[in-house]
Write a protein that binds this DNA or RNA. Structure first.
Length: 255
DNA sequence: ATGGCTTCATAGTGAAGA
């Protein structure tokens, strides 16, 4: 089973990239974030044509998440029941007995902003939500744009980013809290190249200089982690014309 | 240099992303 997460930064703009990627890689599930379109504008037909179901929760201009899947998604839940939120950042579905949770965790903007407080409250709610999901479903994969670089190794210049949003102790503690539920970082189950990142700023030739951060993650409950055979970041879509600023992250799980 | 680039928005002194 191949599970993937990709922040596409506008599904309108990136639809051709997503369709090409699906056709080439044929994942069992592709979790998307930052659709930046209303649910009524979701390109369902385009995914029908390439053989994918879609569960989605759109929003005008900002946010928006989707799970594309080979099998029909079951028990679809939108949002976190324990956290009222106007922003569309969570969708979950069961695929072949695996609970797939797709999240777009708030960015937080800066540590002195209201958005940062919202991010911390959001992360606290996610901890509770995930504990419940694991209790119900057992085998759970949490995929998405976490907007957290878990360790200095996940940052191109840790000194510059020390104490900045994406790297603060509080955010990293929240990430560790998810690991405390028994989940493993799929990417770090394997030896990986140094300076492996999933996001690069559009500005200053960030990608060409590999000035990036690893902020998109796939956490796996123990059985899924044991079954995990590989974890990779696909840099190729980031090299295309008009790319998303994020790269897809994929894990494969043995049956 | 509180900049740089991209998106969606509106026609802003733009807002937000990360």
């Amino acid at each position: 089973m191949k599970l993937v997460t990709w922040n596409v930064n506008s599904l309108n703009v990136r639809l051709p990239h997503v369709l090409d990627w699906l056709k080439e890689h044929q994942p069992d599930a592709l979790c998307l974030q930052e659709l930046k379109l209303e649910s009524s504008k979701f390109p369902q037909e385009a995914f029908d044509e390439v053989g994918y179901y879609a569960a989605f929760e759109g929003q005008k201009t900002y946010n928006g998440v989707a799970i594309l899947s080979r099998v029909k998604p079951e028990d679809v839940v939108k949002g976190m029941l324990n956290f009222a939120d106007e922003q569309r950042r969570v969708i979950a579905a069961t695929l072949n007995g695996v609970r797939v949770v797709c999240v777009y965790i708030p960015n937080g903007q800066s540590v002195d902003s209201d958005k940062y407080q919202y991010k911390l409250a959001w992360l606290s709610a996610l901890q509770t939500f995930m504990k419940e999901e694991i209790a119900i479903y057992g085998d759970v994969a949490l995929l998405g744009d976490y907007n957290i670089a878990p360790a200095d190794a996940d940052v191109y210049d840790p000194k510059q980013w020390e104490g900045q949003v994406l790297c603060t102790d509080a955010e990293r503690a929240a990430y560790q809290g998810l690991l405390g539920l028994g989940m493993k970082d799929g990417f770090r189950l394997f030896e990986q190249p140094e300076k492996s990142f999933t996001w690069w700023d559009y500005r200053m030739n960030g990608f060409k200089r590999n000035l990036g951060m690893r902020i998109d993650h796939i956490l796996l409950t123990p059985n899924l982690a044991s079954a995990c055979a590989s974890a990779v970041i696909d840099l190729i879509p980031r090299k295309l014309e008009r790319p998303s600023d994020h790269a897809p992250v994929a894990v494969t799980l043995r049956a």
